[in-house]
C-alpha cells in the first residue's frame, strides 16, 4: 500500500490537476512514468508496446482526471488504466498460448504425500543468476503464464505491491489474489526446477 504521505501527495496533485494546474500533471508524469512503463513492459516484453501504452495512459490521466472520484487510491486507478491499455495492446497481436498450470504440483500418493524426489536448487543459483540463459528461461516462463495469473504475479512479486493493493487494483478478493499468485509460483517453480536440474546434469557430464 502507498504510505499515508504518498496518498496525501497524490490527493493534492489530483486536486491541483482538476483545478487546471499543469505543474501537477508534470509531477504526476515524473512520479508515475516508470511504474506505468515497467508494468506494461513486464506484461508485453516489448519496448515499443510499453512506450505506446505509457503515452496512452498519460493522455488518459490528463483527459479523464475529472472522472476520477477518489473511491480508491489514485495509484490503483493509474495501474488499472495501464492494465487496460496493455490488454488492448496484447489483444491486437495475441497468439494465445495455453499452458496447464496443473503441472506445477509434484506427484502425490493417495494419502497426499510426495512421491517424487525434490531437489533443492535454491542455494546454487547465484552463479547462474546473471547468465543470459537463465534470464531467458525466467522471462519465457513468466511470459507463458495465463494472463490472470501473470498480472497478479507481476504486480505482487515483481513490482512488490501488497496483496491488498493487488486486490484493490484488480477488484479481486484477497483469497482470489493469493490463489492466482500461488498457481503462478507453482508453475514457475516447476519450470525453474526443470531448468536447474537439467543444468546440473549438463555440468556433471562435462
Amino acid at each position: 500500500m502507498p504510505t499515508q504521505e504518498e496518498k496525501e501527495q497524490d490527493e493534492i496533485l489530483v486536486r491541483d490537476m482538476k483545478a487546471g494546474h499543469m505543474e501537477a500533471f508534470d509531477k504526476i508524469f515524473e512520479l508515475y512514468q516508470r511504474r506505468i512503463y515497467a508494468l506494461s513492459f513486464n506484461m508485453t516484453r516489448n519496448q515499443m508496446d510499453a512506450q505506446d501504452v505509457t503515452q496512452e495512459v498519460l493522455l488518459t490521466i490528463y483527459r479523464k482526471i475529472d472522472t476520477f472520484q477518489g473511491k480508491s487510491a489514485f495509484s490503483s486507478w493509474v495501474y488499472r488504466i495501464t492494465l487496460n491499455a496493455t490488454y488492448m495492446k496484447l489483444r491486437t497481436k495475441k497468439k494465445e498460448q495455453y499452458v496447464s498450470l496443473d503441472e506445477g504440483l509434484p506427484n502425490f500418493n493417495h494419502a497426499g504425500f510426495q512421491n517424487e524426489k525434490i531437489s533443492d536448487w535454491s542455494k546454487s543459483t547465484d552463479s547462474l543468476l546473471f547468465s543470459n540463459e537463465t534470464k531467458g528461461v525466467i522471462e519465457k516462463a513468466v511470459e507463458l503464464l495465463p494472463e490472470k495469473e501473470k498480472v497478479v504475479f507481476i504486480l505482487r512479486d515483481i513490482e512488490g505491491l501488497s496483496t491488498e493493493k493487488v486486490g484493490d487494483i484488480l477488484d479481486l478478493t484477497i483469497p482470489a489474489v493469493k490463489s492466482r499468485l500461488h498457481r503462478a509460483r507453482l508453475f514457475l517453480r516447476k519450470r525453474l526446477s526443470n531448468y536447474f536440474d537439467e543444468y546440473k546434469t549438463r555440468s556433471s557430464k562435462k
Partner: peptide, 15 residues
Amino acid sequence: ETYRQTSDLCRKTLT
C-alpha cells in the same frame, strides 16, 4: 526453499 527462491529469482531478473 525453491518456492521462495522462485519469486526472488524472478524479481531479480525482471527488475
